[in-house]
Design a protein around this nucleic acid. Structure first.
Lengths: 230, 230
DNA sequence: CCAGGTTTTCGCCTTAGAATCGAAAACATG
DNA sequence: CATGTTTTCGATTCTAAGGCGAAAACCTGG
């Protein structure tokens, strides 16, 4: 503690996820330089001396990849295998970042969105990081309102259903989704409705998330405190 | 990435939790040197160049604090505020570690177990780390079998109930606890029973956890895939 | 204006899992 | 053997989610 620590580098990495065209995707850029030239990697970079990891990843995302509209950022895990990158040792702190589905942020030439179900050849341990981010998102979708970070400010139940289906990787019922979220008090109607598409159909009511802060809906899903202590 | 990263120190810290005398406690040692002399802090130390963070925290725990019997170790979070420790900057990776309740490991003179509900003056950001560890444990008790790491190899339902009550901070029903864990297939009877105490009573059956690997019992508690896709 | 098609919405019923309660079982002691 | 104590088990209630189908609200084409 008081001892001098060793000279290990530190970087921050972002797994930026978004549901695009019905599938969950991650933003990757293609490396131009060795090592691992041509492979795909997560955005991020070295941690400056005057920033904590969260400040740093937010700044680097906003600057480099032109994402002012990241709706959620949370720490994922530390990746610290000694040989995770060639050359001098670098420890990486990875983040899960989310972008609402209605945005199409401008990204540099050498970046693109890749489906998490079918990742290309990735550099270093970035594949494992991206998959870990996906798993975290999927788990949290069920017991938090993290869905707000994937959705536009207002949306129909059908649209929300597609988002959840895309992120989770399986069909979810619109009926049940609405009932579950409503019961939790997370969903509230905006009052307005959308016009039906060219094929007709009943106009859909618009909803929004009641509170756009991340909230754990049921911290203790199973062993709840007794009724009189709640 | 290829760039030289800055010379930031890195340490690993352990929040070692155990249920003792019915309450959840954390192992702290009292600092003898400045800064923060006299205050209580978490065990840990600098990360060597040739170890990943998990290997390092395991070794340091086993060596320094004489805990060969830590039953569970998992990454908690990175604490990276620039001024989290005085002097040269140090980033800390914190771990949640658990010790089964039947063990009383030998610990150095200047360490002792403190209830998380009533922590003494702590050094640096160690109080926040310890509380975060507590919260993580509590959340996981409800949707994983992490309880195995708090319990002896064999135990009665009453003993397990006390463990859960101590860790969660509220009374849980022995009946319900048994049924929930049994339904999940986590609990199996050993066959043997304990002798009643001096006050008499029916002898209690002994149980063990069916599988002592950490398992998430219901990853998606709420929005499950449809029955035919499970 | 009406028939047929499409999408959304709502209500009802079923299922799953957990909380609560109380009685019975199995021991001790005096 | 009566009484007290602790554990165990079953029955019932409660809460929340899943599944299904009908009704509502719009479209288009004849």
């Amino acid at each position: 503690m008081g001892d001098r620590t060793t000279g290990i580098g530190h970087e921050v990495l972002a797994a930026v996820l978004q549901v695009r065209q019905g599938t969950l995707r991650v933003l990757l850029w293609q490396r131009a330089l060795e090592p691992h030239s041509g492979r795909w990697s997560l955005p991020g970079g070295a941690l400056p001396a005057d920033e904590d990891v969260e400040t740093s990843i937010r700044r680097q995302l906003a600057e480099k990849v032109d994402l002012g509209q990241v709706s959620h950022v949370e720490q994922l895990a530390v990746f610290s295998a000694v040989d995770r990158v060639p050359g001098p040792r670098v420890i990486g702190t990875a983040f899960l970042c989310l972008v609402p589905s209605h945005l199409d942020p401008e990204v540099p030439e050498d970046t693109s969105w890749h489906p998490l179900a079918d990742l290309p050849a990735t550099a270093f341990d970035h594949r494992a990081i991206a998959l870990r981010a996906r798993d975290r998102l999927r788990a949290k979708l069920s017991y938090t309102n993290i869905g707000f970070a994937l959705a536009p400010p207002a949306f129909t139940i059908s649209a929300l259903r597609e988002l959840y289906s895309g992120a989770l990787g399986y069909r979810v019922s619109a009926t049940n989704l609405q009932r579950v979220l409503t019961r939790r008090g997370l969903l509230e109607p905006t009052g307005s409705t959308t016009k039906p598409g060219p094929a007709g159909g009943r106009p859909a009511a618009q909803f929004r998330f009641a509170d756009s802060r991340m909230a754990v809906t049921d911290a203790f899903a199973v062993l709840k405190p007794p009724a009189d202590q709640r």
